[in-house]
């Protein structure tokens, strides 16, 4: 996902000009950078930051949708949702693995998430109030994520690009799953249609915020674009998302909560209203409706899992010792 991953990234770097120029030449030639290759410290730090926050977003993202696994309205929906939330966990895992190639451990990244030092996508700090939210998240949030993730498949850092290819391949069902839920609701009873419209009203603006601050306010965009960690600007991706999504909503008879939303023939895209950036920054900084609960849930899982992880390690040591002893006895 998430251009928001760059918020707070320190892109400055201290290597000499010749080193930086040689590195830039490799990037410009579309060469992939691999883990052991020489790279500017700023590049490494930016990647750790972005991949880590991307991974955290997947993991925290399991919670709002996980909230409805036990209450899914049919067995078919239940299986699809469980598989989808499981996928998010898998994507988090692929991404942590990609970040680990840069010399940071999953445990360190987890601690940064829990301490609040590392951020995750602001969208997951909104609550899932009704079943329709599961449709809206799949359709809008995964739709926005895909917009961001497809260009990341060509990211200059090899392990990140490879993880994204796998993620994109798996994620192709997520958005369809969400849209199908919305479509059923929009074509269902009056009550169901109301659920769908209410969910769209609540998730539309936060979805647009997922692309991160406007290009004019984004501090790290330029350097990340130069290093091809990012391949489109926040505003470009946001526009692509709006242009793709509005006709989908209209097709199922839902309306968007933006009076300024209208087709602009000249630019060949939609104009849309101003995003409430105060709300965005409030949620990023911890003031969203669910920030505390999300981190508390992750903290609880981490703390309550500690004895399991310790037991696994302790048993592994015993196994190894027993194997050694058996080998010695045999010799």
């Amino acid at each position: 996902m998430y251009s928001q991953g760059l918020i707070g990234a320190k892109t400055e770097t201290t290597e000499d000009e010749a080193f930086l120029a040689a590195f830039q030449a490799r990037i410009d030639a579309e060469e992939k950078i691999e883990p052991n290759d020489p790279m500017p410290e700023g590049y490494r730090r930016t990647l750790i930051r972005q991949i880590g926050q991307h991974a955290h977003s997947e993991i925290v993202g399991m919670l709002p949708e996980g909230n409805w696994i036990t209450r899914a309205p049919s067995l078919r929906r239940k299986a699809a949702l469980l598989a989808k939330v499981q996928d998010e966990g898998g994507h988090g895992l692929y991404l942590y693995s990609a970040a680990e190639t840069l010399g940071v451990s999953r445990e360190e990244m987890t601690e940064e998430l829990l301490s609040g030092k590392a951020k995750y996508s602001s969208i997951f700090n909104y609550p899932t109030l009704t079943w329709a939210d599961i449709g809206a998240i799949g359709w809008l949030v995964d739709g926005a994520a895909i917009m961001n993730q497809i260009p990341l498949c060509r990211c200059s850092y090899g392990p990140y690009a490879r993880a994204m290819i796998r993620v994109c391949k798996e994620e192709s069902f997520h958005q369809r799953q969400g849209y199908e839920i919305m479509m059923h609701l929009a074509r269902g009873t009056a009550e169901q249609k109301e659920l769908a419209q209410d969910a769209l009203n609540r998730w539309w603006w936060p979805s647009l915020m997922m692309f991160g601050p406007s290009d004019t306010d984004s501090q790290h965009g330029d350097q990340s674009m130069k290093w091809k960690i990012k391949r489109f600007t926040n505003d470009e991706l946001r526009q692509k998302f709006v242009d793709a999504t509005v006709p989908q909503g209209e097709f199922i008879g839902l309306s968007f909560p933006d009076p300024d939303l209208k087709w602009n023939e000249d630019k060949g895209g939609y104009d849309f209203g101003a995003i409430d950036w105060d709300e965005f920054w409030r949620v990023v900084k911890g003031g969203g409706p669910m920030n505390r609960e999300r981190i508390a849930a992750r903290q609880k899982a981490w703390d309550e899992g500690a004895w399991v992880r310790e037991a696994a390690l302790a048993h592994a040591r015993k196994r190894k010792a027993r194997r050694e002893a058996a080998r010695m006895a045999a010799e």
Partner: peptide, 24 residues
């Protein structure tokens, strides 16, 4: 090569690899 997993020993590593990387 398709990725990595965390596990305390080789048996659990194989199971984790199965659960993570062969779901499709």
């Amino acid at each position: 090569h398709c990725g990595s997993v965390h596990a305390a020993d080789e048996v659990m590593a194989l199971q984790a690899a199965r659960d993570v990387y062969t779901r499709r």
